[in-house]
Design a protein around this nucleic acid. Sequence first.
DNA 1: CGGGGAGGTGAGAGCGCTCTCCGGCACCAC
DNA 2: GTGGTGCCGGAGAGCGCTCTCACCTCCCCG
Lengths: 349, 349
Amino acid sequence: MTETAPRPTLEAVAERAGVSRATVSRVVNGAHGVREALAERVRRAVEELGYVPNQAARSLVTKRHDAVAVVAAEPESRVFADPFFAQQLRGISKELTAHDNQLVLLLTEGREDHARVGRYLAGGHVDGALVFSLHLDDPLPGLVRRAGVPTVFGGRPGWDDGRDGVVYVDSDNRGGARAAVRHLTGLGRTRIAHITGPLDQTSAADRLAGFRDLRADAGPGLIERGDFTSGGGERAMRELLDRCPGLDAVFAANDLTAAGALRVLRERGRRVPDDVAVVGFDDMLPVAEQTDPPLTTIRQDIEEMGRLMARLLLRGLDRRASGDETSAIAAPAPSGVVLPTTLVRRASA
Amino acid sequence: MTETAPRPTLEAVAERAGVSRATVSRVVNGAHGVREALAERVRRAVEELGYVPNQAARSLVTKRHDAVAVVAAEPESRVFADPFFAQQLRGISKELTAHDNQLVLLLTEGREDHARVGRYLAGGHVDGALVFSLHLDDPLPGLVRRAGVPTVFGGRPGWDDGRDGVVYVDSDNRGGARAAVRHLTGLGRTRIAHITGPLDQTSAADRLAGFRDLRADAGPGLIERGDFTSGGGERAMRELLDRCPGLDAVFAANDLTAAGALRVLRERGRRVPDDVAVVGFDDMLPVAEQTDPPLTTIRQDIEEMGRLMARLLLRGLDRRASGDETSAIAAPAPSGVVLPTTLVRRASA
DNA sequence: CGGGGAGGTGAGAGCGCTCTCCGGCACCAC
DNA sequence: GTGGTGCCGGAGAGCGCTCTCACCTCCCCG
């Protein structure tokens, strides 16, 4: 079918333009120091021949790939059930594209995949990695560290001990949770319950921490563990209602959970928000806007998270490339960047 | 920080094992014709040195990259609002991984991005492309064709004239629509309405066609255009109800649309499914399971679509690589593969 | 016991590019 | 005129790998 036409090489362009390979290379790579007349001739030759540099050959000598790996553990329902990952990806993609970098997607599933990813990263096929690590016991972080690839994490890694210069981007889960609680108390609610997410995920743990910040007195009776699913939200809500029928507000760790809680609340004859006010987290649109009543929730700028991750990584790569130790000191890589969240007020609280 | 240690080369392994580069290469690439004793020595040296082949160097000579581009137009709400894309990606990823291929993700947005993608594909950085083309007037298909890269499309391209050997994978939208209607008529419904999707997308057009297959007599009064969103579903449902208050069933082009319709139905005091039965399409879980009542819908195997796309592409690449004209004739690339859909019965119909 | 395989192994020529030299040339000052 | 000073541009050496050949053992058969 489509016979792969032999693509023109630098050599061919050089010949056509009547110059040497080196000159063509200089022009193609935007280096200065080539007389305009010559440069123009080269450019025309490039155009006429439809020359595109062979990335493999270039990488071979530069040791740069202009490619970044995005690593995500696939089985994490969170990653794929929500539109989250897609949105982060979009942010990442935009930023990488703007800097002429390619995005190599590595989805893992199971142990053997981890080994594969480790090998791939260690193999020096990409300049850096963007890793989504949501679980406390995630093997991925250790793996990429061993691979020795510059990395930025998405979400606070569980083992961030604040010292080892791990770079990550997260949204302000704790602050968002506080804002949710503050909103609820502002509404005059006093018996506020919290349905957590799976606590082996830092986002869930941080949201719980934020809740506790303002409700230090909340007995365990007002806190029930959920799992970021609506089914879990239902279960937890029932439990909570049985234990503490008089509660007047619920802060759910995410919107799915809140949707489940809402259903149980209605089923038990509680009016929302009159009897019980509900606040979610994420502002996951297809859910938050379509619950009954529409959900008041905490929004995070997912796409910006992705974009920021990419930006941080590329910046780090540049610094490394220029071997500029001083600037590395002048502007040390931030170890964690936390994006603000905002309260979106709808009808449920 | 992590000083990039100079990675061992084939040469280094060869020296350590006391053989020539060629032999190491043979072992590494699994070629036979190396005495077991030697092969073992080589393997040990590889292990000890932690040798990983340099893909750039390899590509330079083989002209193979073991990488496939996945191209998707980002602004299409469909691609990112649904978990669809993520699921297809997962299927694609699994299949590619199984064949040791990398996935390079290219998200486009706007005209200049198209040019960029075109250049990238034409640049021969990947062996093939998987392209999601949902719109009739999508410029992407023409672009990849010009780039001359082996391609498999996701979703039937609008311009598939049945002749030019375009390879694509789609789910059976038309058959699924027929199944939906058949289910409704089986329930004794006679005044069945259809809320379409945006008809410039082949999936929406095909679903409409399936509806028409069995309801050729359905006047335009029973067909209302939607846009795959719940808001559109609401609008269309109101319209339909005003125009034809006696309708007893609705087939919505997707679940989001159905969710919107459901809301309007309730608002207008119609009981579902008693007064009006509703069937959706997609079986988009967070939506279909959580509508009230839960949605009867047509499920498609999204992940399998992705997997199949990848499989088809890789198969084509293999054939091309082996230059095996005869097998190309013996097993011609299928021009379109259509995956079956199944009816998932819940409470709405 | 010698010749002809057959099967292993190594040498070496690139793949297409970048980048370091180094030579050439124009221009200035003396 | 001569020597210096830049700036351009070209030559050439690889980057790490694959792959074709040629060579070199052995082994088998006549």
